[in-house]
Each structure stands twice: as structure tokens, then as C-alpha cells.
């Protein structure tokens, strides 16, 4: 069957044999966007986190049929080196990644958090950012999340001033 959605600003239609196929595999293997990672396939690690209509979703456990007509954003669509998302900007400033495999998932989870709360406390970070990083880069991630929040507030302020 054919399923259409918007992904990273583009309208796409994909042919799938089985509408229960996790969105993760459609994104990775059909659309060839490899930034969204497979870590566990059971919604237990967060490596596959992307946005569906602005919400952080663990795409390994989200059937593609639910994505019909929705707006999906992956790490590739979050920002680019030329126009980084505040989260990516902060991640670069703090030099967060080690192996890097978990990082897109963390950045997507953080971006979703900041879109709702641009001044999270440590407790709110602990409660919301529950992905797994085996290299244990949590210490820098926390710093980067606070920094990203700061950058987000600056941008929000500018856009209110401009409007």
C-alpha cells in the first residue's frame, strides 16, 4: 500500500508491503535517511527518536501507517552545518558526541523538550531525557541541553521582538 507524509519539509509517498512496518525502517531503508538509528527495536533506548507532528517518537515501535498525512522531522531535517538547530549548535559547542551513535536520538528528544519548555530544570531534563548513551556522555549532554535552551530563548525573544 501507499502511504504519504511530509518528511523534512518534503512530501513523500512510500510503497510498503506491510503497513505495520516500523517507521524506522521506512525512514532508513526506503527513504535512505540513515541518521535515525536502530538500537533495540523495543522502545527501550531512544536511538530511533524522531519527530511526528512535533512530538518525540521512538520510531522503532511506531507503525508506518500512523504516519499517514503527518509531518515527520529526522536529524537530517533538524538543521544543517550552515543552519544548525540550537540543539545542534549547543552539541557542537560542548563537543558532546563520543561514538555518536545515540546522539541523533538525544538531540531529537532534546529539541522536542525545548519546543515545549525552553527553560528546563535539571529535574525536568532527568524526567524527559531518558535515552541510553553507552559512552555515557550525559555530563556534557546536560550542559549542552542548558546551552541549547539558552539559545532557544534568545531566538524566541528575537522572533517576538520582530513580530
Amino acid at each position: 500500500m501507499e502511504i504519504s507524509f511530509q518528511i523534512n519539509g518534503e512530501n513523500r509517498s512510500v510503497q510498503v508491503e506491510d503497513e505495520n512496518t516500523p517507521l524506522l525502517w521506512v525512514v532508513r531503508d526506503v527513504l535512505d535517511l540513515k541518521g535515525t538509528k536502530f538500537g533495540c527495536g523495543k522502545a527501550a533506548c531512544g536511538a530511533c527518536t524522531l519527530h511526528v507532528d512535533g512530538e518525540a517518537v521512538r520510531s522503532c515501535s511506531y507503525a508506518v501507517k500512523f504516519a499517514k498525512g503527518k509531518n515527520i522531522v529526522t536529524i537530517e531535517g533538524l538543521g544543517t552545518p550552515e543552519r544548525p538547530h540550537p540543539v545542534q549548535q549547543a552539541w557542537v559547542e560542548e563537543i558532546v558526541p563520543q561514538c555518536g551513535y545515540c546522539q541523533p536520538g538525544f538531540m531529537m528528544a532534546t529539541a522536542a523538550l525545548l519546543s515545549k519548555n525552553d527553560h528546563p530544570t535539571d529535574e525536568e531534563i532527568d524526567a524527559n531525557i531518558i535515552n541510553v548513551c553507552r559512552c555515557a556522555t550525559y555530563y556534557r549532554m546536560r550542559k549542552a541541553i542548558h546551552r541549547a535552551a539558552e539559545l532557544t530563548r534568545e531566538t524566541n525573544l528575537q522572533s517576538t521582538e520582530n513580530s
Partner: peptide, 20 residues
């Protein structure tokens, strides 16, 4: 700064799992 920083922050397909 890490030489692989950008690849890792912007989601480049650099891992074994990403090969195709």
C-alpha cells in the same frame, strides 16, 4: 574539537549499520 564532530551532530551515515 573532535574531527568527527560535524558528522556526528548532523547525522551523517558513518556507522557499519548505515552502510548500503
Amino acid at each position: 574539537p573532535r574531527v568527527d564532530l560535524k558528522d556526528k551532530v548532523f547525522g551523517a551515515p558513518i556507522f557499519g549499520m548505515d552502510a548500503s
